[in-house]
Design a protein around this nucleic acid. Sequence first.
DNA 1: GTCTATAGATTGATAGAC
DNA 2: GTCTATCAATCTATAGAC
Lengths: 205, 205
Amino acid sequence: MAEKNTKQCILDAAERLFALHGYHHTSLRKITGEANVNLAAVNYHFGSKEALLKAIFEYHLTPLNQTRQENLKAVREQALQQGKIPQVADIIRAFIEPTLRYRDSKSGSNYFIALVGRAMAETDDTVRNLFLHQVKPLGMQLFEIPDLQPERLYWRLQFTVGVISHAMRINGKFQMVPENVHPEQDADSLIEQLVPYLTAGLEAP
Amino acid sequence: MAEKNTKQCILDAAERLFALHGYHHTSLRKITGEANVNLAAVNYHFGSKEALLKAIFEYHLTPLNQTRQENLKAVREQALQQGKIPQVADIIRAFIEPTLRYRDSKSGSNYFIALVGRAMAETDDTVRNLFLHQVKPLGMQLFEIPDLQPERLYWRLQFTVGVISHAMRINGKFQMVPENVHPEQDADSLIEQLVPYLTAGLEAP
DNA sequence: GTCTATAGATTGATAGAC
DNA sequence: GTCTATCAATCTATAGAC
């Protein structure tokens, strides 16, 4: 790990450990230990533990949010060309596909998805505020979606966040699985399970 | 707080702080401080911090699970009398109503719901194992529900857990609310929002 | 049962030599 | 840039007086 760029080694190790055990449960000593790097290197390169987390979010979310925004634009334009309003399923897909596929992409990360899932569910201010600041502009566009009373739409979007966040977090760590079930866990399978579920919920009578 | 039963004061304060800030973010000093009780009292009455959490779960979940089990039985019997299979919406309701209404009930707690929401989402072993041990027997009964491939049912139940857990946790602490929306937060409103959403998701094509 | 005092471990951050 | 050594704070848990 440490034979290349020290800063990158810290980023990689921190991302993995934050995703697996959470921000507050991961000490700088565990991070620098896994990265084979000196303890003081974190504060030299990033300034603080919180700034390290912020750097991880920015590193991944900047390109991810851009992809999401492009997908969303494409869905809107295609619907416009056909004189329709965008389908809920397409909007959902535009939002979740980039993040969920990110795990398998070449520049992507195996662990960042779980970290995002944690951040979406976070009630602690440190992590949540850092994350919300990065995704709020994009997330607010979901409120343009369907023909619903604002309050009903609000709740259903909250539920949507709950589903996605939970799906991202369990990432292989299952609870309450019956013995005869062995669920697929790759990104495509998850997306194909998620889209109809979320669409049905948002469009429920 | 401390003028009555010391043990109960600790339970109440711990429940509140665990719900608001999480188990690991709440020190015994904060608990005993809020309960106006000596620090050593926790270990005297409960043995350890973990045993205190376990006591909180048992205190509330024992009667709650019993109510849930009775509701579920009633739904089954009513369907049987009509020669039908139970409706998904009724099963959902049997599960979530006791917990969500618990906030307003006389013996209930304002904060226990948020604590359950946290526990459902917990990836840390300490909290999750304590909680799962209490709810797994009941939760597994959900797998008897509908006419779905086992894997698809499995995923949809996972999503269901995500929705409920998130709804319980946000409990007044909202993220990304448009300015013109002021959602109701009482138990009945939440249940009426949840049931159709969850039912539609579980029954999606 | 309740208290003080403290042990023993871990944390984030930093000073200063190299 | 990297290292050692350490500070100051925090934590759970416990021993022992009252």
